Amino acid sequence: MHTQRPDVGASETVTVRYWAGARAAAGVDQESVDGVATVGDLTTRLLASRPGLAAVLPVCTVLVEGLASGPEAVLPAGAVVEVLPPFAGG
């Protein structure tokens, strides 16, 4: 049986920080987003509000509190989400 933790919910705010090419595509360094419960909800919202992310976001790694997270990952209240495009180099 799945129960929802009290610190998780779509009414909470998360902070999204953009890095490198994702920052350029978003046009901002960071923003606050309300009403998203999962990473999938968040990325859908970001694509709708920032069309420039369409070319970059699908190849980005999304970190939630420092951990790589897929679309189904639940966003805790007050989470910090980092959007990192692929980096070249070696």
Rank of each mutant, 00 (worst) to 15 (best):
V33R: 03
D34A: 12
P85N: 13
V39E: 10
A37Q: 14
Y18W: 07
P58F: 14
A88F: 13
M1E: 07
E65C: 01
G90H: 08
T3E: 02
A55W: 05
L84K: 05
P6I: 06
P51W: 02
A54I: 10
S69C: 03
T44K: 08
A37C: 10
V33E: 07
G9D: 04
V64E: 02
V62E: 03
P76H: 07
P58C: 12
P6M: 00
A10H: 11
T15V: 03
V39S: 10
L75F: 08
R50G: 13
V64P: 02
P85K: 11
V80S: 02
R5C: 10
L42Y: 04
A37R: 13
G27R: 06
R45W: 14
V62I: 00
T15R: 01
A79H: 11
A24G: 00
P76M: 08
A25P: 00
V33D: 02
D34H: 08
L63P: 04
T43S: 04
G27E: 06
P51D: 09
R23D: 09
S69Q: 01
S11H: 14
V33G: 03
P86G: 05
A26C: 07
A79Y: 10
A20W: 05
R23M: 15
G78A: 07
P86L: 10
A54T: 14
V59A: 15
L75G: 07
R17H: 13
A25K: 00
P51I: 03
V56L: 14
V62M: 02
Q30R: 15
S11E: 15
A88P: 06
V83M: 13
H2R: 15
T38P: 01
G52C: 12
E72Y: 06
G89R: 00
R17I: 14
D34G: 09
D29V: 11
T3W: 01
V39R: 07
V74D: 13
V83G: 11
L53D: 07
V33W: 02
P58G: 14
E82F: 12
S49R: 12
D34Y: 02
P58A: 14
P58M: 12
L46C: 12
